[in-house]
Simulated assay, not measured.
Amino acid sequence: MTDAPSLFLGQSFDGEPQRLLLNRANRHGIVAGATGTGKTVTLQIMAQGFADAGVPVFCADVKGDLSGISQAGGTEKFAERAAKMGFELHGKAAPTVFWDLYGQKGHPIRATVSDVGPLLLAQMLQLNEVQEGVLTIAFHVADKEGLLL
């Protein structure tokens, strides 16, 4: 174990703490897994850890799963689980700025339809699966033909 600055990510199946050394963290990463395996919690831990270490964090969160990081608190369940992992849970709110394409509930941003992309646009328009598929095809054709939407 090294004394280098690191982020606590969780623990392995055998109870060993898993840490990410800050000097080994690069600009890209992936957190993948099946539903219910802890991806959102892992991302929240990472975002909070990086922010606490003074690293600016930007999360593109279309579904809003990570928005809870902006609120102080926690639950007894989280505190209990954290204690079992040897992790101290502070329950403080992270400094958060929400960017809002509509400019109504957050920091307004300017973007073209092409910039928004089919996934976010489908979420904004509350499209069903079929409609989202058609929209994705339209974006693909526009990209292929060099057209701006």
Rank of each mutant, 00 (worst) to 15 (best):
M1K: 11
D65E: 12
F98I: 02
L101N: 04
P17E: 01
S114V: 09
D65R: 02
G73M: 08
T96S: 02
R81Y: 14
D65K: 03
V134S: 05
W99S: 10
W99A: 13
V62Y: 07
G74V: 14
K105C: 01
K39S: 04
G29H: 09
S114A: 09
M124L: 15
K92G: 03
K84C: 12
G133L: 09
K84P: 03
V55W: 07
F8N: 00
R81M: 15
D14A: 14
F98V: 00
E88T: 15
T96M: 04
Q48F: 02
L121M: 12
S6N: 07
G133F: 02
E129F: 00
V113P: 02
D3C: 06
N26P: 05
D14I: 08
L66R: 07
T136E: 14
P17C: 01
T75M: 11
Q48S: 00
E76S: 13
G146L: 12
P108H: 05
G68N: 08
H28C: 10
S12T: 15
L147A: 11
G36Q: 09
Q104T: 10
D14P: 01
D52C: 01
F139M: 03
L21R: 15
A79P: 05
M1A: 15
G73W: 06
P5H: 11
K63Y: 06
A47H: 06
L127G: 03
P17L: 04
G64L: 10
E129N: 09
I30C: 13
Q48P: 00
F87K: 05
T96C: 12
R110K: 11
V41W: 05
Q44A: 08
F139L: 00
M124V: 11
L22R: 07
M1D: 14
T35D: 05
T75C: 13
T136D: 10
L147Q: 08
P118E: 00
A53L: 04
P108A: 08
Q44E: 14
S70V: 06
G117E: 04
A82G: 10
E129W: 08
V141I: 13
A53D: 01
K92R: 15
Q11V: 12
K63E: 11
K63R: 07
Q131R: 06
T136S: 14
L22I: 05
A138H: 08
L66N: 01
T96Y: 05
Q11C: 13
A25C: 13
G36R: 10
H140R: 11
G54K: 10
K39C: 03
I30F: 06
E88C: 12
L20T: 08
F8T: 07
T42V: 02
G29L: 13
D100A: 09
D61K: 00
M85F: 12
A60V: 11
G10Y: 01
I109Q: 06
A111T: 07
L22Y: 05
E76Q: 14
F78S: 14
T2K: 11
L125I: 06
V130E: 12
A142Q: 06
Y102Q: 08
Y102H: 10
H28A: 13
R19W: 03
G29E: 04
R19D: 06
D100F: 01
D65V: 00
D61F: 01
G133Y: 05
I137W: 02
L125S: 07
T75A: 12
L43P: 04
P95A: 09
N26T: 14
A94N: 07
H140S: 11
V97I: 14
P56A: 09
V31H: 00
G36T: 06
D100P: 08
R24L: 07
L121T: 03
V116I: 15
